[in-house]
Amino acid sequence: MHGPGSAAWLLVALCAATGAYCLLRMRSGVEEQRRAAGSEALMGFGMALMAIPAAVITPPRTAWALYAVVFGAAALRALWSSRSSAHHVHHLVGTFAMAYMAVGMAAAPSGHAGHGGAGAPLVTGLLLLYFAGYVLWSGVRLVPVATAGGGPPANGWGDRPELARACRLSMGIGMVAMLLTL
C-alpha cells in the first residue's frame, strides 16, 4: 500500500484517528453500535499499519500472513453477523479487501505493493468500484445529517450518527487509496 511519502503519512493519520474514534464509540450504550465500532476500529488501525511508508518499515512476509489471518477471521465473523444486519455485509467486503491486500503484499516480490503484480486486476477493480460507490453513497448520506443541526443528542457524542458516518466515509476513502496502490 506504500504510496508517496506525504500521502502515505496522511493516510496513516486518517486511518489511525478513525480507529481511535471508533474505539471511543465502543462505549456506546447500544450493543449493535459497539459491535460495529469494534469492527471499524480494527479496520482503521489495520489500514494505518498497512499504509506506513516502505521507507520507514517493510514488514516481513510473516506479518502480511498474520494480517491475512486476522482479517480473514474478521471476514468470517462479519459473514456470520451479516445474517442479522445488512451493515455487516459492508464489514464483510471491507475485511475481505483487507485480507486480499495482505495476501497481495505477501506475494509481492519486494514484500510491498505499489510496483505492480500484487493482486488480481479483476478483484482489485471490483473492490475499487465497490468502495468508490460506497464513498459517494456515504458522502451523500452524510450531507442531510450534518446540515440538520441541533447539537449533540442526549445520549452522548459517541452515538452521533454523523460522526459514525464520517468515520465510515474516511475509511472508505482510505480503502480506495490503498487499493489504487495495490
Score class of each variant (00 low, 15 high):
G3F: 14
G3S: 10
P4G: 10
G5Y: 13
G5E: 12
A8D: 11
A8I: 11
W9H: 06
L10P: 00
L11V: 15
L11F: 08
V12P: 05
V12W: 04
C15A: 13
T18D: 04
A20T: 13
A20F: 06
Y21C: 08
L23K: 01
L24M: 05
R27E: 04
E32C: 01
E32L: 06
A41L: 10
A41P: 04
L42I: 15
M43T: 14
M43A: 14
G44R: 11
G44Q: 09
G44F: 04
A48I: 15
A48L: 05
A48N: 04
M50G: 15
A51F: 11
A51Q: 08
A51P: 06
I52H: 00
A54T: 09
A55G: 13
I57Q: 07
P59I: 00
W64C: 02
A65H: 07
V69H: 01
V70C: 05
F71G: 01
F71I: 03
G72N: 03
G72T: 03
G72V: 06
G72C: 05
A73M: 13
A74L: 13
A74H: 06
A75H: 01
A75G: 03
L76K: 02
A78V: 10
L79W: 15
L79I: 03
W80L: 12
S82H: 05
A86M: 01
V89M: 05
H90T: 07
H91S: 13
H91V: 15
L92Y: 09
L92R: 03
G94C: 10
G94K: 01
M98D: 00
M98V: 01
A99Y: 00
Y100K: 00
A102M: 00
A102I: 04
V103K: 00
A106N: 00
P109F: 08
G111P: 04
A113S: 09
G114T: 01
G114Q: 05
G114L: 12
H115S: 15
H115V: 11
G116I: 07
G116Y: 09
G116H: 08
A118F: 15
A118G: 13
G119F: 15
L122Q: 03
L122H: 01
V123T: 15
T124M: 07
G133D: 05
S138L: 10
G139L: 06
R141Y: 02
R141D: 11
P144Y: 05
P144R: 01
P144C: 06
P144Q: 13
T147K: 09
A148H: 09
G150D: 05
G150P: 02
P153A: 13
A154T: 14
N155I: 11
G158E: 08
D159I: 02
E162C: 09
R165A: 13
R165G: 14
A166F: 09
R168K: 07
L169E: 10
S170R: 06
G172Q: 08
G174D: 07
G174N: 15
G174R: 14
M175C: 07
M175S: 04
V176L: 01
A177E: 02
M178C: 11
M178P: 01
L180Y: 13
L180R: 14
